[in-house]
Structure formats: C-alpha cells, structure tokens
C-alpha cells in the first residue's frame, strides 16, 4: 500500500539570508497525515527540521501550517486526500518566523490574552444531549484552539501589524455573549478601536479556514452590531450603560 510522495518543505534558520525549500521523499500509507510525514522526515531523514506539534488530534492547535497553500492543522490533513503528487509545506503567514515551520505566537497571545475570555462556556455542547448515567452536567470548552490560522489567512492581518485579529475579536464577542465575571466594558474598549473590530473588511477568510468552527468573522460582525447599537442608545439616552 506504500506510495512515495514528494514533500517540499519550507526551511529557514535564524541567520539565514533567505528561506529555501528542501525536498523529501516520504512513504505514505492511506491514513498518513501531513504531520505523520513531517515527523517521519525528522526521524529518518533530517532531524534538524523544526515543527511544533503536540496532541495529534486537532485539540491543541499547535501544528497549524500551510499545506499546498492552504492553512490547515497538519495532524488532521490526510496526505492522499490532498490528491497532489507533490505536497508543499510552509509556516503560517502574518507572524514572525522562528525556524522552518515554526512561527512566533507571542503577538497572537498578546492580543488573545488581553481579551482573557474564560475557557469554559456557560452553555453546554448540545442542550438536550444524552449524558452518561450519574453525569449531571456537561461542561463545554470554548471552541477556539488558539492555532493562529485565522490570523494567517486574514488580509487585514497581512497589512496591519496592529490589528487585534480574528481570534481575539471572536473571543471578545464571546465575553460579550457570556461575560462570566469579566470586565466587559474593558474588553469592549479593546475591541472598539480603529485597529480592532472596525478594521475588519469582512472577507470571511478566517471563518472559512477555522478548523474549530469559531466563526470569527461572524462574531466580529455581531460585535460591531452590538457596539453600533450601544452608540445609538447612548446617542438617544446618554446615560445608558456602556456597551449594553
């Protein structure tokens, strides 16, 4: 069942004049993922290939990268299903490059953590879902796995280094929906900025690319509507509470 697939992998080490691509031949099985192939390259061909990964099942959000020009989680991207004789692997865009396929996530988390949205939702996964005997309540985590794909595909993040970005803005809207004790006026003040929610141009690339159904663009538009509504209410009732 083995089938050899050519991988063209983006390479860059600190101090290199420019990035280049290395080519590797990898034996693949029908269920081989891009992450499997990259770890196989590390194991048998080039241990210096740097990549970031952890869980192998789309929960940790660390193996986001560009495969054949599209941002995906490498761990759940099947090589054969790509249907190309050659697979091009590149790091995410719109983030500082650290090494090979690894980008600096600090700017992402500086924005995301500024919003500081709680991790556990108030709402459950499916309100009427069946639970195991003895389980009274199911908790649901927020959908966002903090992978950075939304920022990589965003045309605004591509030109505005100050843009708050889809993930952080979606998180802000989740705080608006379920404040869970957070300082909502403060969160809204971060989002209500020329580099915040108003900077989005509604390309919806983030929503299309998100591997975890966060729908950042939809949240950004809901947040805009809420902020516009708040402004209109303040216009007609100046003492109305901020953002409510």
């Amino acid at each position: 069942m083995g089938e050899t697939v050519t991988f063209r992998v983006h390479r860059y080490k600190q101090g290199d004049a420019a990035p280049h691509q290395d080519t590797f031949q990898v034996e693949t099985e029908p269920r081989t993922t891009v992450l499997d192939a990259l770890t196989a390259i590390r194991r048998t061909q080039d241990p210096s290939l740097t990549l970031r990964h952890s869980c192998f099942h789309a929960s940790c959000g660390t193996c986001a990268m560009k495969v054949n020009g599209r941002e995906v989680l490498a761990c759940v991207t099947n090589v054969r299903e790509l249907g190309t004789a050659e697979v091009v692997v590149e790091p995410l865009e719109n983030a500082p490059l650290v090494s090979d396929l690894v980008v600096e996530m600090a700017p992402f988390f500086a924005r995301y953590n500024a919003i500081d949205r709680p991790l556990v939702r108030e709402s459950e996964l499916v309100p009427g879902a069946q639970r195991a005997p003895g389980v009274e309540r199911a908790l649901r985590y927020e959908d966002c796995i903090e992978c950075g794909i939304c920022v990589s595909v965003c045309p605004i993040a591509g030109t505005d280094p100050d843009y708050l970005g889809p993930a952080a803005l979606a998180a802000a809207d989740r705080v608006r929906e379920e404040p869970r004790g957070r300082d909502l006026p403060f969160v809204l003040s971060l989002a209500d900025d020329p580099h915040g929610v108003w900077r989005c141009h509604a390309a919806f690339e983030c929503t299309e690319a998100c591997p975890s159904n966060v729908d950042p663009a939809g949240h950004i538009m809901q947040l805009r509507r809420a902020l516009i509504g708040g402004r209109l209410r303040r216009l007609f009732a100046p003492r109305a509470e901020v953002g409510r």
Binding site: A106, P107, F109, A110, L164, D193
Partner: peptide
C-alpha cells in the same frame, strides 16, 4: 497553552520581555 496573561493583559514568559497589544494612536 503558552503563557497566561497578567492583569494588564501582558504575556509574560520567564526571561522574556512582556508583549502586549498596544496599537499606535492614529
């Protein structure tokens, strides 16, 4: 994953300068 935010929203990892979102005023 990664570091947690302090109260001011800055990301602090050991031995690293804090990174915070602070856009320039336009």
């Amino acid at each position: 994953m990664a570091g947690r935010a302090d109260e001011s929203g800055a990301l602090s990892a050991p031995g690293e300068r804090p990174v915070r979102w602070a856009p320039e005023e336009r």
